[in-house]
Every structure is written in C-alpha cells, then in structure tokens.
C-alpha cells in the first residue's frame, strides 16, 4: 500500500494541529492560526467567519492546494502536506471532495461528464466511470444527465456539484459557502442535499459560511475569528 493510500478508517476524517499560514508579504500576523481541530469520520461541522477571515484559504490548505508555514493537516490519516506534487493531487482527487459557492461546473461538459471527469482524475477505472456517475446523478435526482449544467436549474446544478464532490467516495467534503448565491428556499434545499448525501456516502463535511442561518443545521459549529487567530476545539 502506498503512502497515499493510507487511511485512518476508524479515526478522524480531518485532523489539524498548529496550522499557521500567511500570504507572502501579507504582514506580520497569521491569516490562519488553528491550534487544533478534529473532525470525525462522517461528522458534519459548520465553520463560520466574516468575509476575508481566511475561510477559503483554510479549505485550500486542507485540500493541499496551498502549503502552510507551520502545522499539519491529516485527511483520513494521511498527512496531506507530506505528499508532494502529483501524489498529493491524486490523494485530493480520491479522498477530498469540494463544493463551491458558484458550483464551478465545466461548460461544454454534460452533467454526466462533469462527474466522470472527477472520477477520471480521481483514478476510477474507465470501465466503471459512466455507470457510477449515472447512478450518482440518478440518486441525486438529476433528470437530464446529458444536459450541460447551464441548461439545468440552479438547484439541479448544485446537485451536480454535489455529485461531483462525492464521485470518488471521499472521506472529507469541503463546502465553501455552498449556498451564498442561492435564495433562502433553494439554499435550504441545497443544504439538505449536501448534508444527506455526505451522510449517505459516509463522508465528513466541513462547511464554511458567513451565513448565521446555517447554524441551526449543524450540531457542531466553530468560529474562525478575526483573521488573526482561531482555535477550534477538539
């Protein structure tokens, strides 16, 4: 078993220790300063913070898209930043799903292809991709998987984005302001889909949002404070 395949199946989906980050030339203080944070397998947590507090940066650090100056991030037992280059990217593709505020679905690709693409990059064999993607979209209630996302309703687009995030059976789903561009009714529906889908897939969900109304949906809530220091409890 390679290093990238190591997973802590019985333990935390996410473990952060002493994570510190600031942009180059970004001043003396830390933008991200998380002393310790643990998210159990299948657990769901809301992380709130005002705009500009570094929520998205934290998610990118967790996903291994950025390197911290200090600290460690473990996803499913694998220290993300210990992996280099393509190995880290492959790990991200397989173990971490991401959902964005504006969905970030690819134009020119059908809903099915958007999901298949994630599976291809996540290393799922060509033979099983189409069937799995179609089934996933069916489960999420996508009526026209062969349609391009821009021809689908906003709610359906959100579901395709969720399907893509769950395509490779991730241990952790990172949702970045997933409802910020939706009206309250659609937002509620979208959050239902995200939370239920993650629950069904057994994936932990870390949702960042500045929307206080989201609080009621999560049993566990933490606040990333002031852009200088955050200490989320274990």
């Amino acid at each position: 078993m390679s290093a990238t395949d190591q997973t802590d199946t019985g333990g935390a989906a996410l473990r952060i220790e002493g994570l510190k980050f600031r942009h180059a030339g970004g001043g003396p203080g830390w933008l991200i300063d998380v002393a310790s944070l643990r998210l159990g397998a299948g657990e769901q947590m809301l992380l709130t913070a005002p705009s500009g507090a570094g929520k998205s940066t934290l998610l990118q650090l967790i996903a291994g898209l950025m390197d911290p100056q200090e600290g460690t991030v473990e996803v499913a037992g694998q220290e993300v930043h210990a992996l280099r280059g393509a190995a880290r990217d492959a790990f991200r593709g397989r173990r971490i799903g991401m959902i964005f505020q504006t969905f970030q679905l690819l134009n020119g690709f059908t809903a099915l292809e958007n999901v298949e693409l994630a599976m291809m990059l996540g290393g799922i064999g060509a033979g099983e991709r189409r069937g799995r993607a179609a089934e996933l979209l069916r489960q999420l209630g996508i009526e026209r998987p062969e349609a391009e996302p821009e021809r689908l309703s906003v709610g359906q687009q959100q579901r395709v984005a969720v399907a893509r995030a769950l395509a490779c059976g991730p241990k952790l789903v990172l949702a970045d302001e997933p409802t910020a561009s939706l009206d309250p009714e659609t937002a509620a529906g979208a959050m239902d889909v995200i939370q239920e889908s993650c629950r069904a897939a057994g994936a932990a969900l870390l949702c960042v949002s500045h929307d206080p109304a989201m609080g009621a949906r999560f049993a566990r809530r933490e606040r990333l404070g002031g852009g200088v220091r955050a200490a989320a409890g274990v």
């Binding site: 280059g85 990217d89 492959a90 593709g93 693409l117 990059l121 290393g123 893509r164």
Partner: peptide, 16 residues
C-alpha cells in the same frame, strides 16, 4: 484559468 483550477481541485497534477 477557471477550468484549470477546477481540474486541479479535482486531482489533476500541474504536470498533467
């Protein structure tokens, strides 16, 4: 750039 960023998020390496 957006497409490339999405590919990266989904697991595409820089080399790919």
């Amino acid at each position: 750039r957006r497409q490339i960023a999405v590919l990266r998020v989904l697991g595409a390496s820089k080399r790919r």
